[in-house]
């Protein structure tokens, strides 16, 4: 059974690209359009990996990570940030919130697959 990934981004094109990339590598992918949508999906289904953007309406990536880390089943689930934000300050905030890693857009699909394999196999 393939590992499932929750991909959260308010950009339709990024969701499509992440979906396309991870599905071609054999993963099952579920999309969410913002942090609040992602949180709702994460509560309804357990995912092996969460991939989230930072700047989103309604709930941003950092708030989502904090909310997920309060859910017992997501305390050890890898959460990767995929964002255009690249400042050290933002990365520090991400680390403090409980992010597993930080990827800066635009992502290299081959590198994304490599990292996802490294994190969840």
């Amino acid at each position: 059974m393939s590992k499932n990934v929750l991909a959260i981004d308010d950009s339709a094109s990024i969701r499509q690209m992440v979906n396309f990339t991870l599905k071609s590598a054999g993963y099952s992918v579920v999309d969410a359009v913002d942090g609040r949508d992602g949180l709702a999906r994460a509560k309804s289904q357990q995912f092996d990996l969460v991939l989230t953007d930072q700047n989103m309406p309604r709930m941003d990536g950092l708030a989502l990570i904090r909310a997920l880390r309060e859910i017992p089943s997501y305390q050890r689930t890898p959460i990767l940030m995929l964002t255009t934000e690249s400042s050290d300050e933002m990365k520090s905030q991400g680390r403090a919130a409980g992010a597993t890693g930080w990827m800066v857009k635009p992502f290299d699909p081959l590198k994304l697959i490599e990292v996802v394999r490294k994190v969840i196999g």
């Binding site: 690249s86 400042s87 635009p106 992502f107």
Partner: peptide, 18 residues
């Protein structure tokens, strides 16, 4: 002051695992 597209030191495509 801080545009959404990074002007930080980290280039696009970079990956950092904590």
């Amino acid at each position: 002051a801080n545009p959404p597209v990074g002007r930080g030191a980290t280039p696009g495509g970079s990956i950092e695992l904590f």
